[in-house]
């Protein structure tokens, strides 16, 4: 039997078949968790954020209008992330924005070079970091990223190249 597409399943969920959300959870929770983890670095917080993403997906199921599911669910994830950063900013008014998303010791790099990569990524702003993580680390296509950010695939591609170039420069200058 052929597997149902993400979009078909979500349409069914939107029409009330909540139990099918479990299938989408299985397909996506790891990617969303890792996206958030690579942005925020705290495992416990990211598990909570991930759960909140799926909660919102169910609560606002009727806002799903049939586009690419990956774009829709990652849009919710990004919104959640933005809310999280907002909240952090309000709670820690002394810490400047640059320090947000700093990787605490809980997420270790497998080797020195990757640790260096993490450090370099901290020097990107939130939007640049999101783009790299979504495209390079989570394998989301330019088209799907474009659909979730309201941009075009071409513009996303240009931005992605600009960001990796920046990454290269910082990485090798600070190596």
């Amino acid at each position: 039997m052929q597997t149902r597409s993400d979009e078909d399943i979500m349409m069914a969920v939107a029409q009330g078949e909540l139990q099918l959300m479990a299938e989408l959870f299985e397909r996506y929770h790891k990617r969303i968790y890792n996206f958030l983890l690579q942005m925020v670095g705290d495992r416990a917080v990211c598990e909570d954020l991930t759960q909140n993403v799926f909660y919102k997906a169910i609560k606002y199921k009727h806002s799903y209008r049939g586009g690419k599911f990956v774009s829709w669910i990652f849009r919710i994830a990004r919104n959640n992330l933005a809310d999280h950063f907002e909240k952090q900013k309000r709670l820690n008014q002394n810490i400047d924005v640059e320090a947000l998303g700093e990787r605490p010791e809980s997420v270790q790099a497998p080797n020195e070079e990757v640790a260096h990569l993490y450090q370099v990524m901290e020097r990107l702003d939130v939007a640049e970091k999101e783009l790299i993580i979504m495209h390079r680390l989570q394998g989301i296509s330019y088209e799907d990223i474009a659909e979730m950010t309201g941009s075009t695939a071409g513009a996303v591609k240009v931005k992605a190249h600009r960001v990796v170039k920046k990454l290269r420069k910082i990485y090798f200058e600070s190596a």
Binding site: C46, F54, N111, R136
Partner: peptide, 30 residues
């Protein structure tokens, strides 16, 4: 060459598996 190096490093970034707490929490919520 520099980009190739970065790509290798990207490949080495671990994709973690979240704890069972996440799935349990989700199923409870569902």
């Amino acid at each position: 060459e520099a980009q190739q190096k970065l790509m290798t490093l990207f490949g080495q970034v671990p994709q973690e598996t979240p704890s069972d707490r996440l799935r349990d929490g989700f199923l409870d919520m569902l």
